[in-house]
Design a protein around this nucleic acid. Structure first.
Lengths: 214, 214
DNA sequence: GTCTATATCGGGATAGAC
DNA sequence: GTCTATCCCGATATAGAC
């Protein structure tokens, strides 16, 4: 064909552009889904924010549901990183302090991801159930095992490791998920460096003291 | 009028029935809104669950939005009760233990209310902002003052009272809002009495130890 | 890959009889 | 107070030209 000789370079450029456009749509989807939910969000809104038309968006993602799942999947990966880093080798106090700090930092830097995740779980996680009962469960079980080891070695006070992990998640994510309530009551947010540090310190103190680590 | 003599009794009965029907709709609205959200829920669904037709529902509530607000308002009242009960007169350890227990009990007994509240806040609380910045803020401020008093008297270790209240809210509500995640990981729920007690104990230990109360 | 036009549908809300 | 019928709009998704 006459186009064959021109195909290579343009094709590569197009593919890259396509990938960028997909990214833009995923970003826009995160913004809109995290504030309006799956049903409240419209493809028009997302498309406009991503800088293309609705029909064009549907060229990249075959349906609203599939776009939503794609957004959610990307969120989940980011969200589990800090827990993966929790390490048996380090000193318990250091490890927990670091974990708490990185979780609060995530609530500051990716609040929309936290909120979307929250919305999905609260509504029963119809799309994430498998993900939760599988990979997440085994990950939590592995980390709980580390905590149990520390208890057995007398390095931290005995405390149910699952409840401990839930408590840390709950507190740290609260500052992203309930940011509007926090703001209404305190007038501050994690974007304020002082408030960020105070939040980290408060959470660290609570958790460490609860484990007998001063 | 000829109907005047018959009006009293039937009117009263009708008014009572109407009130009951309204209640049924509010209950159904709570169930559906708390799992599907404002936009995901349909009036048909709510009406069916309440045992009437959609048009009939719209006789009791003029619009979907107004029904939603009515449901939300009822939820908010229930949700603030436990904090109101936090009393300056009692022993700090007892007061906090009691507060935590009643919050976890609420997460067990009214999980849907917790979830609806959560959904609303996460989405930016367009309808509750005033409520949060006004009454809730002053209530929290009053209770924070009690905690500050205890700190000043040396009865609890120094800890930012607002962060402390947020932590307690976050942990206790987590077991309602993230129940599907908790279930996916532990296989248990607050409906299980053992798990309920373990949750209460874990939270109490964390908070009390964090305040230097063993 | 992107556009215009359109099919199609669910759902909120109203009109009016009974 | 409750029903049937209907209006109407917004939103997803598709068809087909360019």
């Amino acid at each position: 064909m006459s186009t064959a000789s021109r195909t290579r370079a343009p094709a590569r450029r197009l593919r890259r552009d396509g990938a960028l456009r997909r990214e833009a749509v995923l970003d826009a989807g995160l913004e809109v889904f995290s504030t309006l939910g799956l049903y409240g969000a419209s493809l028009d809104q997302i498309a406009e924010r991503a800088g293309l038309s609705k029909t064009n968006l549907l060229y990249y993602f075959p349906s609203k549901d599939e776009l939503y799942v794609a957004v959610l999947r990307r969120v989940l990966d980011v969200w589990l990183d800090p827990l993966l880093a929790l390490d048996a080798g380090s000193e318990p106090a250091d490890a927990l302090r670091g974990y708490i700090r990185s979780k609060v930092a995530l609530s500051r830097d990716a609040p929309q991801a936290s909120r979307l995740f929250c919305l999905e779980i609260v509504q029963g996680a119809p799309l994430l159930r498998a993900e939760l009962a599988g990979p997440l469960r085994t990950l939590v079980e592995a980390k709980a095992q580390i905590l149990r080891g520390w208890v057995a070695q007398g390095r931290i006070a005995p405390h149910d490791p699952q409840h401990l992990i839930f408590s840390i998640w709950a507190i740290t994510q609260h500052y992203a998920d309930f940011a509007t309530q926090v703001d209404a009551i305190t007038g501050r947010s994690l974007a304020d460096p002082d408030f960020f540090e105070a939040t980290v310190a408060s959470t660290q103190r609570l958790v460490l003291a609860g484990l007998g680590l001063t």
